[in-house]
């Protein structure tokens, strides 16, 4: 038997929050990137769940776009990570504090 939609929605809310937690607390830019991917995946799950329960394929198509965006963000994000790494051999956000106040 199919689980009701609220199960999926709550699961994706929890997953989203786990992603948020990862972004805020981890001190490694790459892990932060991965946590952002988690957040986007949680959103995808929401879309697909709604799509299934409303019987409209629209939500699934949107997920397709979200994946595109996620890929683009990952590519650019990693390029930025590399360019920062060139100056300081670090991935810790705390070491990126040239700009403050």
């Amino acid at each position: 038997m199919q689980a009701p939609i609220e199960y999926y929605l709550v699961l994706s809310a929890v997953l989203f929050a786990i992603g948020v937690a990862g972004v805020v607390i981890r001190r490694d830019v790459i892990v932060i990137l991965m946590s952002i991917e988690l957040m986007l995946n949680a959103v995808n799950l929401t879309f697909i769940a709604f799509s299934r329960f409303m019987g409209s394929v629209e939500g699934q198509v949107i997920v397709f776009f979200v994946m595109t965006v996620a890929a683009a963000e990952a590519v650019v994000g990693l390029a930025i990570v590399i360019s920062v790494f060139r100056f300081r051999q670090t991935l810790d956000p705390r070491d990126m504090q040239l700009l403050k106040w």
Partner: peptide, 22 residues
Amino acid sequence: GAAALCLQLAALVHRPAVSAEA
């Protein structure tokens, strides 16, 4: 912080309009 957000989101989404499967 994340837990607080989680609670809020969960509270908001746990009763959606569509409940029956289409």
